[in-house]
Design a protein around this nucleic acid. Structure first.
Lengths: 114, 114
DNA sequence: TTCGATATATCGATTATCTATATATAGTAT
DNA sequence: ATACTATATATAGATAATCGATATATCGAA
């Protein structure tokens, strides 16, 4: 990460759901897609992603199915559910409101009379 | 918090340094100022702030001095250091780059050919 | 004189990230 | 063939940042 990794806290789930709102993906593919879309700024680690996916599945926001990829290799594809789309919408709204508020505090300086 | 509290992770230190870049403040005042500037969206908890201030002090980003406030009450004012201002600048740049990247991924949907 | 607001502090729980490790298949270069 | 790298999923332990709960004490107002 080029920045404090803790900045990512809370937004990773949103980003994953966003990817899945466009198409079904398997884990490794999500890592690579996120890296590409972010110009290699986000290098999400496997140790972060897989537990997160299992958690999203437990909470009914994604479902999982297996697909053959080669003779012996099986990939686990994830698909977003209706609840997942709702959760994504909520998270996106939260994110916009959060960043607006932070930027408001950051810019607040000049206009406040102390 | 009106949103997932973990979104705040990593940005609280930046916000506190930002407040202190404008004027010296004591802890309780920072909590109230943040609430006011954010229209009560940020309700930073004392249990978060005081350890954070001690940590900033340990790292030389702020200094502390006491000031009388009443007969018996003493307030602990914090003042940002030169290193603190440098760290703030870095954190603000990080923050802008981070949010831009997240928004890029969020908007990325339509323009990508799969 | 009591109660709520002000003011600082610490502790334990929770959560999200990371690194390291493990396992196995697929492809490529030597 | 063989070895190395990339692909692919998974778990365990460490670290860091937040919270809620709790503690203590002063101040101001009803």
């Amino acid at each position: 990460m080029a920045f404090d990794k803790s900045l990512l806290a809370g937004s990773t789930g949103m980003l994953i759901l966003k990817l899945l709102s466009r198409e079904d993906m398997y884990g490794y593919q999500m890592i690579e897609t996120l890296a590409t879309l972010s110009d290699d700024t986000f290098s999400l680690k496997a140790g972060t992603l897989y537990p997160l996916l299992h958690n999203l599945e437990e909470n009914g926001l994604v479902t999982c199915y297996e697909a053959q990829a080669g003779q012996a290799r099986v990939r686990k594809y994830y698909s977003i559910t209706k609840d997942g789309r709702k959760a994504l919408e909520v998270k996106e709204t939260e994110w916009q409101s959060f960043t607006e508020t932070v930027n408001k505090v950051l810019k607040g300086g000049v206009s406040y009379a102390y």
